[in-house]
Design a protein around this nucleic acid. Structure first.
Lengths: 340, 340
DNA sequence: TTGAAAGCGCTAACAT
DNA sequence: ATGTTAGCGCTTTCAA
C-alpha cells in the first residue's frame, strides 16, 4: 500500500461527495456533525490512509501544541529526568516537546530561543545556562506573551513562574547533618553566585551553622563552577591547607566525587578525617566508595510540575502568575558522612 | 519594545514599498535581488523585529528542517549522549530535533511514529523499543519515502540504513579478556534474542570461547531483560548454583552492577572468586567498587554517525542506501576482572 | 531585478 | 447538519 501522494481532507471530501469543512469538523469530533457522517469520514480516512498535516493546522490556528525546552545539557541525569517528567505529562495532554541544549553557553541559549520561537512553540520551559549573564534573549518570548516557566536554575530578573527545589532547606539539612555528626570545621564549596540555587544552598548552610553556634570561617567557603576538574582544585585547596576542614558540603555531587577521588589518592580517610555531603543524588553517588551522603532532588518531579504550570498558563490563559513552586528535598545518609 | 502583533514579510514590504516576494527573496539571499534591496530589507526586518514563521514556510515548501528521534528512554546515559551527538550535528546543519521516548513499549513507539509523521519531520532516527515485536508502524515512514536510520537496537526486517557498534567484537574481546585472566567457567547473561546487538554480543562471546577451546556450558548462558531487578535473579541463579562460574560477562553494565551488589552482599569476592565484565561503560561503572571492567561504546559517536547518514539521505536525495555502519568498541580494564 | 498571483492543507466565520 | 469562502505567512512560477 505505497502512498507517496499525501492524502488530504479534500480527498476524503471528494470520495464522499461532501465538503472539506465537514470532513475537518468530523475528524475533530465537532458536535454539530451527525454520527453517521463522522463514521463515514473516519472510515474513509482510514481507508485512504489519511494522516493529518499538523503544519497546516498549526499555521491556521497559530497554535502548535508544542512546548519548547531549553536545558544546559541532556546528559546530566537531573536534566534528563526532568525531561522525562516534562515529556510524559506533555504527551498525555497532547503536546509535543522540542528540546534544545544550551551547553551552558549564553550564545547557544540565545540560538535555542530563536529556534523555538521560529517553530512557534506554545510555551517554553527553561533552565538557564551557567555561563549566561544576560537574559535579554528571553524577551523574545515575554514580549510576545509566550508563556515561559523556569526550573532549577532560575534568575530573579526574569519575571515568570518558577519551579525549584528547596535549596535553602537542602543546604540547611546538609549542614545540620554534619554538625550532628560532631563536625566543627565545616567547609562549603558553593556554585556561581548569580544563580539562586547556589545562593540558597549557601544561605541554608550558613543558617544551620549559626543556629548551632558553629564558627563560620570565610576561608572554608569557596566558590566554584562545580565541574569535576574544578572539584579537584577545591579538594586540594581545602585538604592541603594548614588547618583542613573536618567536613565538606559540596555544591553538587560531581564536586563531592572529585573530593572523594582526591582524598582516596592522598590516603585521607572519609568520613573519619573529613566527612563529605553532596547535592543531587546523581545515580553514581550510591555506588561510590564510600557511598555519598547527598541531598536528593527529583528532576522528574520538577519537570512534571513545571509542565503543569506551563500547560495551565497555555490552556487556561491564566496569564503569567509568577508563582514560584518549591519542591521538597531530603537527605540521603550514606557512608561518606557516617562518623560514630 | 512590546511586539504583540507579529511582523510578517508583508509589513516589511509595505514599509519599503516593495512586494512581498521581493522581501522573501531578499531574506533568503536569492541571487536575483540587488545587494541594495537586500540590505534595505534586512535592515527593516531588524528594525521591525521580524522573526520568520517557520510554520508557513514549512507548509509551503513541505520540508520542515526537522528530524525526529525515537529512543527508549532519555535518562539512560548511552541514549542521552546519542542525542547530544544527534543534536549537535543537526543544529549545525540547520535542523531541529524532536525527541520522543518509547519507554521500551511497542504502543508508545507507535504513538511516537504518528506524532513525528504529523509534524512532517524530514527524517527519523530511531532505536527500537525492547518490548516491540512488531515493527509495522515504521511503514508510515518507509511507505512515504521518509528517510529512516536506526541505531544501536536495529532489526533486520526493516530495510534501512543502520548504525551500530561492533557488538560481536565487544563480546569477543570481553570473553577473550576473561580467558586471558585464566577463567575457565565463563557465564554470559545475554539480552533479548530478537535484537541484533544481543545476538552479536553472544556470538562474539561464543567465538572467543571456541577459539580458545573453552567448554561452552549451556547452563552458563542465560537470557535476561537486563534490568537491575532481573540482574539480581541472574546473579542468584549463577552464583548459588552447585558449580558456579568463575567469570560472568554481563550483557550490560546494569546487570553487571546487580552482580557486584549481590556478590558484595553474599561476601563473594570479585574478581578472585568471580570476575565480572559489563557492556557500555555507563558513568557509574568507573566508580563501582570494585570498578567495573566493561566494553565502551560511544553514544555520542553513534548519534553523530546516524545523523550524518540521515542528513545525507535527506539533502542529497541519495535514496536509502541501506548501509550498515559499524563503529569500534574497546575494552576498559578495571578491577572487577583484575585477577593475577 | 522585481511584482502579481496562486496555493501549501487546514480551520472558522458566516451562511444556509 | 452541512457548505462557501477566505485566509494563516510564506514561496514560487510566470510575467514584465
Amino acid at each position: 500500500m505505497k502512498n507517496e501522494n499525501n492524502v488530504t481532507i479534500h480527498d476524503i471530501a471528494k470520495a464522499l461527495n461532501i465538503s472539506g469543512s465537514t470532513v475537518s469538523r468530523a475528524l475533530n469530533n465537532n458536535a454539530r456533525i451527525s454520527e453517521k457522517t463522522k463514521k463515514a469520514v473516519k472510515d474513509m480516512a482510514k481507508q485512504l490512509g489519511y494522516q493529518p498535516n499538523a503544519l497546516a493546522s498549526n499555521l491556521r490556528t497559530s497554535c502548535t501544541n508544542t512546548i519548547g525546552v531549553i536545558i544546559p545539557r541532556i546528559s546530566r541525569y537531573f536534566f534528563s529526568s526532568a525531561i522525562t517528567g516534562i515529556e510524559e505529562l506533555a504527551r498525555e495532554k497532547g503536546f509535543n516537546v522540542i528540546i534544545c541544549q544550551s551547553n551552558d553557553l549564553e550564545e547557544r541559549e540565545s540560538d535555542c530561543v530563536q529556534t523555538l520561537f521560529a517553530s512557534r512553540v506554545d510555551g517554553v520551559i527553561s533552565s538557564v545556562a551557567l555561563k549566561a549573564e544576560n537574559y535579554d534573549h528571553y524577551k523574545t518570548f515575554t514580549n510576545r506573551n509566550i508563556p515561559l516557566v523556569f526550573f532549577d536554575r532560575v534568575v530573579d530578573e526574569l519575571e515568570t513562574s518558577k519551579v525549584v527545589v528547596d535549596d535553602f532547606k537542602g543546604g540547611f539539612i546538609a549542614a545540620e547533618h554534619l554538625i550532628s555528626k560532631g563536625c566543627k570545621r565545616i567547609a562549603h564549596i558553593s556554585g556561581p553566585q548569580h544563580l539562586n540555587i547556589y545562593i540558597n544552598r549557601l544561605q541554608g548552610f550558613l543558617k544551620a551553622m549559626r543556629k548551632h553556634h558553629i564558627d563560620i570561617n570565610e576561608e572554608l567557603i569557596i566558590e566554584s563552577p562545580l565541574t569535576r576538574e574544578d572539584g579537584l582544585r577545591c579538594a586540594k585547596t581545602l585538604l592541603e591547607s594548614d588547618n583542613p576542614p573536618d567536613a565538606i558540603f559540596a555544591g553538587n555531587d560531581t564536586t563531592a566525587l572529585s573530593i572523594i577521588l582526591y582524598a582516596k589518592e592522598k590516603g585521607i580517610k572519609i568520613p573519619e578525617e573529613v566527612a563529605v555531603v553532596g547535592f543531587s543524588n546523581e545515580p553514581f553517588s550510591e555506588f561510590l566508595s564510600p557511598s555519598l551522603t547527598t541531598v536528593e532532588q527529583s528532576g522528574f518531579d520538577v519537570g512534571t510540575k513545571a509542565t503543569e504550570l506551563l500547560l495551565d498558563i497555555i490552556q487556561n490563559k491564566t496569564g503569567n502568575k509568577q508563582e514560584t513552586i518549591v519542591l521538597p528535598v531530603n537527605l540521603i545518609e550514606r557512608e561518606s558522612s557516617d562518623k560514630k
